[in-house]
């Protein structure tokens, strides 16, 4: 499979990374070379092989339903580049 400009545009949109001509050109080149590289996997017969998403072989730990105050409002908002007394502030969202 090969990546063209349209695909790069689509992917950068999905990734929320602003795109321009130069970015698109370099991505077309890099992404195609990476894809060609990873497509070596097509040599393998992987029929009926169970996918492995975690190497951990234990049961999922489940915590009790207990409220713990882990953070104060000031801490939560502290690092925000744009906030007011109570909220994170973002440019207007158009629904």
């Amino acid at each position: 499979m090969s990546i063209n400009k349209e695909t790069v545009k689509k992917i950068s949109k999905l990734s929320r990374i602003a795109s321009n001509e130069q970015f698109e050109d370099s991505m077309i080149k890099d992404l195609n070379s990476i894809l060609t590289f990873v497509e070596q996997l097509n040599e393998l017969n992987i029929k009926n092989i169970e996918p492995l998403s975690s190497v951990v072989e234990q049961k999922l730990f489940q915590r009790e339903d207990v409220v713990k105050i882990m953070n104060e409002k000031e801490d939560v908002l502290k690092n925000s580049p744009h906030k007011n007394e109570n909220y994170f502030v973002v440019p207007k969202v158009i629904e």
């Binding site: 996997l41 996918p51 492995l52």
Partner: peptide, 11 residues
């Protein structure tokens, strides 16, 4: 998905 399957083979 394929990569996860190959990951199994590697393990």
């Amino acid at each position: 998905l394929k990569a996860q399957q190959v990951r199994r083979l590697i393990k």
